[in-house]
Design a protein around this nucleic acid. Structure first.
Lengths: 150, 150
DNA sequence: CTAAACCCTATAGCCAACTACAGAGTCAAG
DNA sequence: CTTGACTCTGTAGTTGGCTATAGGGTTTAG
């Protein structure tokens, strides 16, 4: 109906950066929009909805990769619901695992902290770098947060 | 006592890559070792202990930045215990916050999943991309996992 | 007519913690 | 004397999700 909006307009409407919109397009999350004679992108009103969809899916913990998968299914005309449901289940499992790891980690932290509080405050030991960490029993499974592959 | 080992030896002993050892040296986590006439690094036996210390601290959730801080304190001759203890407390707080976020996220996931299971399996709706995600009430606080700054 | 406020592409940078590669030198065994 | 396993430096690539910058073109208000 309406004439469509430029990129800054939709970006502001959804609360993202213009570069982000272009980035999503490059990743295949948004279809290539029509252009003016000067090459400006013209967005249909659905685009804001699609962007909000992406943001909501992100907020639910989906990666852009997963979101693209959902949208690809959608573009093929099938309902993405089964696909989304499967992803949701996987995600839930991952969250459970992560929480378990976090609980282990917290227990470890608390033990270490408790030990450190009743450790003698020695000025400096030549052999050990730090008794608190030194005594650590077995390095339990690493947390894999920042990004680490081995 | 013994003559010291080359980089591949210590790397294998600790189970890390040789590049990683050099990387740690570049970051200032390891002191510059002596060299042979040919320029090969010669590591004192303490180096493996130091590397294991780094790995253990990482397993406890410290970043390399934090570990360097600990080691810097240690190099200055002070005991790093107070410093470590402070870092441990901070870390514990962060873990608590993260677990709370994860619990919220899990609740959200479960709600969404439950709703999706009693949603009509419509073939394809033109207006909505996916009813499961579409209906999402309010995009709760994002998880900040991969890295995101806004 | 000009200045601001848009838009375009292409490229590079950010974060952490590596990992890989190129091109060269070294060292011991056979 | 050659082969292969090691080492060196320096640089660039990886992951994910942006963000920034350079260097230009367009549009609109005054």
């Amino acid at each position: 109906m309406s004439t469509g909006a430029f990129i800054g307009h939709v970006a502001q409407a959804v609360g993202v950066n213009v570069q982000t919109v272009r980035y999503y397009e490059r990743l295949g999350l948004l279809p290539r929009p029509e252009r003016t004679a000067a090459g400006y992108r013209i967005y249909a009103p659905e685009t804001t909805a699609r962007l909000r969809f992406i943001k909501r899916a992100q907020a639910l913990g989906f990666s852009l990769e997963e979101i693209r998968e959902i949208l690809r299914v959608e573009y093929e005309g099938r309902s993405p619901c089964e696909c989304v449901q499967r992803l949701l289940e996987e995600k839930l499992e991952r969250v459970e695992r992560e929480m378990a790891a976090l609980r282990r980690f917290r227990r470890e932290l608390r033990k270490t902290l408790a030990r450190s509080q009743k450790l003698p405050r020695l000025p400096h030991s030549a052999s050990a770098i730090c008794p608190i960490i030194e005594i650590q029993p077995s390095p339990h499974k690493k947390k894999r947060k920042g990004g680490e592959k081995r």
